[in-house]
Simulated scan of single mutants.
Amino acid sequence: MLRAYRSAVDTGDTARAEALVAWLGGQPHVAAAAKRSAGIKGDLDHFGAMGALQGLLVVLRDAGHPGLLVVLDEVETLQRMRGDVRDKALNAMRQLIDEVDAGRFPGLYLLITGTPAFFEGPSGISRLPPLAGRLRVDFDTDPRFDNPRAVQIRLRGFDHDSLVELGQRVRDLYAEGSTQGDRIRTLVDDDYLGLLADAVAGSLGGQVGIAPRVFLKKLVGDVLDRVDQFDDFDPRQHYQLTVSSGELTDVERNLAQPARAGDIDLEL
Rank of each mutant, 00 (worst) to 15 (best):
R6I: 00
R6P: 00
R6M: 01
R6Y: 02
D10Y: 00
G12S: 06
A17C: 07
A22E: 12
W23N: 11
G25N: 09
G25E: 09
P28H: 08
P28C: 07
V30W: 12
V30P: 11
A31I: 01
A38N: 11
A38H: 10
G39R: 05
G39F: 01
I40Y: 03
I40M: 11
G42V: 04
L44D: 02
H46E: 14
F47N: 13
G48V: 03
A49M: 11
M50E: 14
G51W: 01
A52N: 03
L56Y: 08
L72N: 09
D73S: 10
D73T: 08
D73R: 05
E74H: 09
G83H: 13
R86N: 03
K88W: 00
Q95P: 00
I97N: 03
I97M: 07
E99A: 12
V100E: 03
F105Y: 14
L110H: 06
P122A: 14
S123E: 13
G124D: 10
G124P: 10
I125M: 11
R127K: 14
L128F: 07
P130C: 07
A132R: 15
G133M: 04
R134S: 01
D140S: 15
T141L: 12
P143E: 07
F145V: 09
N147S: 11
Q152Y: 01
I153D: 04
R154H: 08
H160A: 13
S162W: 01
V164Q: 02
V164R: 04
E165W: 00
E165A: 15
G167R: 05
E176I: 06
E176V: 08
G181D: 05
D182A: 15
R183M: 05
T186W: 04
D189K: 01
D190A: 05
L193I: 10
L193M: 11
A197M: 08
D198Q: 13
A199N: 12
A201V: 01
L204F: 11
G209W: 03
I210L: 14
V214M: 14
F215S: 05
D222S: 15
V227S: 10
F230E: 15
R236G: 01
R236V: 02
Q237E: 13
Q237D: 14
L241M: 02
L248Q: 05
L248K: 03
D250I: 10
D250Q: 13
L255D: 04
Q257P: 00
Q257F: 14
R260P: 00
I264A: 06
E267F: 06
E267Q: 06
E267S: 08
